[in-house]
Design a binder for these strands. Structure first.
Lengths: 113, 113
DNA sequence: TCATTTAATTGCAATATTACAATAAACGAC
DNA sequence: GTCGTTTATTGTAATATTGCAATTAAATGA
């Protein structure tokens, strides 16, 4: 069979896929923890994240790459280190998309169930 | 090797895992589409969702089950049909958790990168 | 130059997710 | 009862995700 295990993104709107892509980024506690650290700390070197979160360095690096590819964070090379931080603009744009989804209102009528 | 392919949830806080679990629910466009329909329509029978979204009935049923297990929707049996709708209370609780995460503020200092 | 430090990449093992055909279950109509 | 209707469940195939050891890459410093 053809596309098993693969989401059929082509049958959904770009907007629906966009929401799903953002949500997937938050769908792992390691990425949640990374983002929380970046919001909290000045110090945002990759090594710090490895220390603070209890995962191996390649694993953290992989999660950072996903967040970077999505544009939610950016990394600046400083010698042998890389300093990561939130991409404020892209975060705000994401927040609007996700916020609109979460803030949907139900119609006035009774609950149907 | 032991836990490959499995998120190491035990090293994260309950709050971080909670955010990830909610986010994962929105991490597939079919579930996004289902929830949007439930917000928009009075008519929320399983069969309608199968018609409106282009996935097979067992696939929709599976996605509905995930949303139901999370508590974001509830289903009421009416004869041979099942009427689904948003669980308003649980949706509001989820919205608060996710909203707090999305609305985090950066410290005042300069961007570190 | 060469060792050290830091992070990214590669390769791989194991589990999770997605999708659907086939089937079952539950109900109503007759 | 039997037949259709609707939804859930089971089983299975295929891809995705997670995690880490080993390695590589790039910069620094002695």
């Amino acid at each position: 069979m053809m596309n098993m295990g693969l989401a059929k993104t082509e049958i959904f709107t770009a907007h629906q896929n966009q929401i799903a892509i953002f949500a997937k980024a938050f769908g792992h506690p390691a990425r949640v923890a990374i983002l929380q650290q970046l919001f909290k700390m000045d110090n945002c070197y990759c090594g710090n994240l490895v220390d603070q979160i209890g995962l191996a360095q390649p694993t953290i690096s992989q999660h950072l790459k996903e967040l970077r590819n999505l544009g939610l964070i950016k990394g600046q090379v400083e010698g042998t280190s890389v300093c990561y931080c939130i991409d404020k603009e892209n975060w705000a744009a994401m927040k609007e998309v996700m916020g609109d989804f979460l803030d949907q209102d139900l119609p006035e009528n009774e609950d149907c169930c």
